[in-house]
Amino acid sequence: GGHPVTTQMVETVQNLAPNLHPEQIRYSLENTGSVEETVERYLRGDEFSFPP
């Protein structure tokens, strides 16, 4: 991942996926670069990993 992630982006995802840890959200956003894509992954039931 190398996309810039803002606190705003993390908070937006958190509102839609409250049971995800912020670190999981941030890591996913760094890989996708997209709030929409991260939320899609969540709704699909994809696994969210923590940063290594």
Rank of each mutant, 00 (worst) to 15 (best):
Q14Y: 08
P52H: 08
E30H: 08
L20I: 03
H21V: 07
N19I: 07
E37N: 07
V35P: 04
T6D: 07
Q14C: 10
L20H: 01
S34C: 05
L43Y: 10
G33L: 07
F50M: 08
S49D: 14
Q8Y: 12
Y42A: 06
V10P: 00
R26L: 08
L29R: 00
Q8A: 12
N31G: 09
G2M: 14
R26S: 06
M9A: 06
S34I: 02
T12E: 14
N31P: 00
G1M: 13
R26F: 07
E23Y: 09
E40D: 11
R26T: 06
P51W: 04
Q14S: 10
E11M: 14
I25D: 00
A17S: 04
E23H: 09
Q8N: 10
P52D: 08
P22Q: 08
R26E: 05
E36C: 11
V13D: 00
T6R: 04
E30Q: 13
T32D: 03
T32Q: 02
G1N: 12
Y42I: 05
R41E: 03
E36D: 11
E47L: 12
T12H: 14
E36A: 12
Y27S: 03
V35R: 00
Y27G: 02
R44H: 07
H21C: 11
P51E: 04
T32R: 00
R44V: 04
V10N: 03
A17R: 02
Q24D: 00
T7A: 15
G45H: 04
G2Q: 13
T38P: 00
P51K: 05
Q14F: 08
L20N: 01
T12I: 14
E30S: 11
R41I: 07
M9V: 02
Y27W: 15
Q14L: 13
V35L: 08
N15S: 15
P18D: 04
T32G: 07
N19D: 14
V35F: 04
Q8V: 11
P22A: 09
D46G: 07
E23S: 12
R41T: 05
P51A: 06
E36R: 11
G2E: 10
M9W: 07
S49F: 13
P18K: 08
N15K: 15
G45F: 02
P4N: 13
H3E: 09
T6N: 08
T32N: 05
E37W: 06
Q8H: 11
P4R: 15
D46K: 07
Y42E: 01
Y27H: 09
Q24K: 04
L20V: 02
E37I: 13
V10W: 06
V35G: 01
H3W: 13
N15V: 14
T6A: 05
F48H: 01
T12Q: 15
N19T: 12
E11Y: 09
Q24Y: 02
E37G: 08
R26I: 10
F50P: 03
N19C: 14
A17G: 02
M9T: 02
E47Q: 13
T32V: 03
G2T: 13
E23G: 07
L29G: 01
P52F: 09
T38E: 00
N15T: 12
V13K: 00
T38R: 00
V5W: 11
R44L: 07
E47I: 14
F50K: 02
V35W: 08
Q14H: 11
P4D: 11
E47W: 13
R44W: 04
S49H: 13
E40H: 13
L29D: 00
F48Y: 02
H21G: 06
N15D: 09
G2N: 13
P52Y: 09
D46A: 09
R44E: 04
R44D: 04
F50R: 03
S49L: 15
R41C: 06
N31D: 11
Q24T: 02
S28R: 00
R41H: 09
S49G: 11
E11K: 12
T6K: 04
V5T: 06
S28P: 01
G1F: 13
H3C: 11
Q8L: 14
Y27M: 07
V13F: 01
R26K: 11
E36F: 11
I25L: 01
Q8R: 11
G45R: 02
Y42H: 03
G45D: 03
P4A: 13
H21D: 10
P18W: 09
I25P: 00
T38N: 00
R44Y: 04
T12R: 15
V39R: 03
E23N: 09
V13N: 01
G2I: 14
P18F: 07
G33M: 07
T6Q: 05
V5S: 03
P52V: 08
L16Y: 11
M9G: 02
H3L: 10
L16W: 10
V13C: 06
T12S: 12
P51T: 04
Q14V: 08
T7C: 14
E36I: 11
T32P: 01
T12N: 10
Q8D: 11
E11H: 10
L29Y: 02
G2P: 15
E30D: 06
P22K: 10
G1V: 12
T6P: 05
F48R: 00
V5R: 02
P51G: 08
E11C: 12
G45C: 05
V10S: 02
T12W: 15
S28W: 08
G1Y: 14
I25S: 00
E30T: 09
R41K: 11
E11T: 11
G1A: 13
Q14A: 12
M9L: 05
R26C: 08
G2D: 10
T12L: 15
E36K: 11
V5D: 03
V39S: 05
E30I: 09
F50C: 08
Q24H: 02
E36G: 08
P51I: 05
P18S: 07
F50N: 03
T6M: 07
R44T: 05
G45Q: 04
R41D: 03
H3I: 10
Q8I: 12
V35C: 04
P52W: 09
V10L: 11
P18C: 10
E40A: 15
N19R: 11
S28M: 14
R41A: 13
E47C: 13
P52R: 07
Q24P: 01
L43D: 04
L16Q: 09
H3N: 10
T7W: 15
S28Y: 06
M9S: 04
S49A: 15
N31A: 14
E37R: 09
S49K: 14
N19G: 13
G1S: 13
N31T: 15
H21W: 07
V39I: 15
P4I: 15
F50Y: 10
L16K: 08
Q14P: 01
S34M: 03
T7G: 09
F48L: 06
E40Q: 15
V35D: 01
V5L: 06
Y42F: 10
G45N: 05
S28N: 06
P18H: 08
F50W: 15
G1D: 10
Q14M: 14
S49W: 10
Q8W: 13
E23P: 02
L20Q: 02
V39E: 02
S34F: 02
S28E: 04
H21Y: 07
F50I: 05
G33N: 07
T38L: 05
L29M: 02
G2S: 13
S28K: 02
P18I: 08
P51F: 06
F48W: 01
L20P: 00
I25V: 06
F48Q: 00
V13R: 00
Q14G: 07
I25R: 01
Q24N: 01
R44C: 05
V10M: 14
Y42N: 00
L16H: 09
M9D: 09
E47D: 12
P22V: 13
P18N: 06
